[in-house]
Design a protein around this nucleic acid. Structure first.
Lengths: 138, 138
DNA sequence: AGGTAAGTTTACGTTAACGTCAATGTAAAC
DNA sequence: GTTTACATTGACGTTAACGTAAACTTACCT
């Protein structure tokens, strides 16, 4: 039932409580506060309480994907910085563009690794399936 | 010059010292001993000194690839166990095969993430290149 | 014999990324 | 009005993955 802890009267709730986000993405509230501490997200405050926007949610998704890909929070922070469009001026854009390209190269290298691993294990599967056939035909 | 600290008389050295491996893969000796401590590699001993075989070297490669892909040493240990063929009997093979397939699914999911990230950043690149063109034509 | 270079074990230190209380506040529910 | 549920800020604890320093040993060099 989505527990509308704060009833929204007609308007779609483009905001989220810390619990909503932590439940949706299966992370603890502690983790979310920790990410904030590290400057990865900066939710609004209603008094003391954190109010997460859709943009915060999107950043959280990026954070979690980064984690799944094995990046440290510091690395993720840098990547998020890249995603944050604060640049004006051709010079800045060129600099950011260069960083993007480096990052893309890194990701592609990682993909090579990944595909190598997948390939290896698929070979292993094939071999075992073969072994099983041999054993069955005896 | 490969610094043949221990001269090998004619035979090809299918073994490596701890320094050779650490230099080749740019990891510290401490790390290699640590991996051994955690049961990831088990080099021979000549007295006290560790002697790494080609197989040890191969395992190290797998370890490092696992690290690049963001796996913990415990996870890498499990993966290495999968790679270690100690199974006899169809039942065992079937069990291992199942684990392989699970692992392959995980890797493929990770690849989805990766390609998502690459895609996002390539979009970003395209957008910035576009911006640059606009700025130049002013 | 003395120095240098590589190896060893033991053990304490460090950083990242949270976990786990404790003490407190606030707001809706009974 | 007092539980109940969710929020907050400290502050200390924990685990992983090594780094680093101390105190050797062994082998080769000169």
């Amino acid at each position: 039932m989505e527990t509308p802890h704060t009833l929204d009267t007609g308007e779609k709730p483009r905001t989220y409580s810390i619990r909503q986000l932590s439940k949706e993405f299966d992370v603890t509230a502690r983790a979310l506060r920790f990410y904030e501490d590290k400057g990865l997200i900066s939710p609004e405050r209603k008094g003391q309480t954190r109010i997460y926007s859709a943009r915060d949610r999107a950043r959280l998704q990026l954070i979690l994907r980064g984690k799944r890909l094995g990046f440290s929070l510091v690395e993720i922070h840098e990547i998020l910085d890249l995603y944050t469009p604060k640049d004006r001026g051709a010079q800045q854009i060129r600099a950011t563009l260069a960083k993007y390209r480096v990052q893309i190269e890194n990701l592609k290298r990682q993909r090579e690794d990944l595909e190598g691993a997948i390939h290896d294990m698929q070979n292993g599967c094939a071999w075992m399936e073969d072994e099983l056939k041999k054993l069955e035909n005896k």
